[in-house]
Design a protein around this nucleic acid. Sequence first.
DNA 1: TAAAAAAGAGGTCATTTGACATCATTTTCA
DNA 2: TGAAAATGATGTCAAATGACCTCTTTTTTA
Lengths: 192, 192
Amino acid sequence: MLTEFEAYLQMHGLPGEAIHRISGLATRRTLRRNEFLFRTGEICRHKVFVLKGLLRTYNTTPDGNEHILQFSPEHSWTLDVESYDRQVPSLAGIGAIEHSELLLWHKPDFNTLLAEVPQLKIFADQLIARNVHQSRHRILTALSATPEEKYEDFVRTFPGLLSRLPLRMIASYLGISLKTLNRVRHAQLQRS
Amino acid sequence: MLTEFEAYLQMHGLPGEAIHRISGLATRRTLRRNEFLFRTGEICRHKVFVLKGLLRTYNTTPDGNEHILQFSPEHSWTLDVESYDRQVPSLAGIGAIEHSELLLWHKPDFNTLLAEVPQLKIFADQLIARNVHQSRHRILTALSATPEEKYEDFVRTFPGLLSRLPLRMIASYLGISLKTLNRVRHAQLQRS
DNA sequence: TAAAAAAGAGGTCATTTGACATCATTTTCA
DNA sequence: TGAAAATGATGTCAAATGACCTCTTTTTTA
C-alpha cells in the first residue's frame, strides 16, 4: 500500500524506485496548532512537505508587526529559502495554523536525493518555476492592486483557505489592516 | 581575446569549453532608448543577457497604469518567466531605458545548452535561487515597509541605478506615486 | 463547564496618500 | 539650434487607510 505522500509523488510522475528512496530518508513530525517548526533567528534545517494541516511562514518587523509570506496547506512544500540555502539564521519563522503532520528531510539528505534521483531534480525544478511565477504575481498584485482587488485575488487563488484562516491572517498576508479587510468584505456584501 | 560576456562567464567559474559553446549560440541585438524587446501580448522567445545599458520589465494594468517589475542593468539576465517557460503571450513587456546591447538565445538552443553543459545548469540554478531570494525580499518590503523605507531600501539595493532612472520609474517600481516619492525625498533632505 | 483568550465588527479621528493641475526646467530630437 | 516632449517640483483637495478603542461573539483550554 502506498502512503499518501507516495501517491502524491506517483501522481507527479515519479517512478516507484525513486519514490521509495525519497520516502526512505524522510522523518515525520507533528505540530500542534500554534506550535512552531522554527522561529525567527533559528536555522531552517529541513525541507518540509505538509501531509495534513496548514502552516504559515511569517516575518516579524522590528516594530512587532507580523507579516505572512506564505500559507502552506496539505500537499505543499515549504521552508525558509534564504536560511535553508545558506544555513544562516532565518528572518522568517514557520508555525502551524492547524494541527499538522509533516515530512522532513535534512538538507544533506535531500541534496543527495537531488543528485542521485534525476526525476526528483526535475520535479523540484518545476516546483521552483511555479514558485517564481507565483512570486511575480504576488509582487505585481502588491504593487498595483487596491485592497479590494487583493482580496478578490486571494479568494480566487486560494478558495479553500478562506474558511480555515482567521481574517487577521488574511489581512496580514495581503498587507492591509484588518479594518480595511472588513471594509472590503462589507462593501462586497452590500453589492450582492 | 575574451569578449566581455565570456569574461563574465569565466568569472563565474565556467570552463573554457562551456563558455565557447554558450557564446556560440548567442545572437546580438541592439535596442535604442525607449525601444522594446517585446510588448505585452507577444511571446518571450529568448533568454536575454544585458551586455550594456538598462532594461525594464513592466506590466500595464487594465486602467493604463504601468508598474515596473524589474530593472535589468548590464551583466544581468532577463526574460518574462511565465511567457518564456510556457511560450504563451506575455502579460509583461521589456523595454530599453538606455541604449542597450543584448545577447539572445532562442529557448530551444538554451535548453540544449542546459542539458549538455552541466556547469551552465548549475550556474542557472544559482541565478534562480538568487532571484527567489530577491523576490521574497521584495514581497516583504511591499507588504510591510512605509514608502520611506521602500525608497531607502531601493537606494541601498541599487545604488548605481538611482542616477540613471527617472524618478517616476522608481516610483513605479516601488508601487508609490511620484508625489509620495517626492515627499519622501524632500523629507530626507530636510533631515540632513 | 466555566473562565480566559482570541476573533472580529464597528465607531471615531488623524494621517497618509493619490488624483489632478500648474509651472519651471531639462532633455530629446528633427 | 529651436520646438516639442518629458521630467519633476509643488499646491490643493478628497478619499483611503490605519491606529486606537469598545463591545459582542466565538473559541480555547484548564
